[in-house]
């Protein structure tokens, strides 16, 4: 039975740029260590955020969210843990798969997360990008495997556009996913209307 959506009555709070000075508040040294410690199936997903001139974006935040290998979307707490001594960051517990990662780009615009492969029916990381100069965040998806025909999103895109959403397997086994904010090979960015 279709759920009747409640009538939206509360006007939303607009977004604002993350600005240049989030660096002492949002990054977490374990933010991208999504896979449990020593897990044999761990994969590395990484890339560069580029602007319309092809220049790296050194002040971006890339967040990822995904299903667990068993298909669960429940997640778990502890993606950005803090210690109770001085409130500083502490490592993740090394055991729980939280499904969420936060990676800030380095001076070369590069980011990376180490995670577990998402399941075959949702073979992607949901990606949210923030940056200085970006007034409102952007959503995209990094597909770690090409699901072939039948994917609601990819089926509607022409080959070149579709290509921007498929991570490239590197000789070293990592998955490369560059994010182009603008330009010729601009990444496909997503919008999720109320459904």
């Amino acid at each position: 039975m279709a759920q009747q959506l409640p009538t939206p009555e509360h006007p939303l709070t607009p977004a604002q740029t993350i600005g240049p000075f989030f660096g002492y508040a949002l990054p977490h040294p374990a933010g991208g260590d999504i896979a449990p410690v020593g897990h044999p199936d761990a994969v590395t997903v990484h890339g560069t955020v580029l602007d319309g001139a092809g220049q790296p974006v050194p002040d971006a935040v890339v967040e990822t969210w995904q299903a667990a290998p068993d298909g669960s979307l429940d997640g778990a707490p502890g993606s950005l843990p803090r210690n109770g001594v001085d409130g500083g960051p502490r490592p993740r517990n090394g055991v729980d798969f939280t499904g969420f990662g936060r990676a800030c780009t380095d001076a070369a615009g590069h980011w990376s997360v180490r995670t577990l492969p998402p399941p075959a029916d949702r073979p992607y990381l949901a990606v949210c990008v923030f940056a200085r100069g970006l007034t409102h965040h952007l959503f995209t998806r990094a597909y770690l495997t090409d699901p072939g025909p039948g994917d609601l999103l990819l089926d509607d895109l022409d080959a070149a556009r579709r290509d921007t959403l498929i991570a490239r397997r590197q000789p070293d086994g990592t998955h490369r996913f560059d994010i182009r904010l603008q330009g010729e090979k601009e990444t496909v960015f997503l919008d999720f209307p109320e459904q």
Binding site: A53, Q55, L134, P193
Partner: peptide, 15 residues
């Protein structure tokens, strides 16, 4: 700073 950091293609609506 928004000049080179915004997409020029429309967002793809995903339902």
């Amino acid at each position: 700073s928004s000049t080179l950091r915004h997409p020029t293609r429309a967002l793809v609506s995903l339902r």
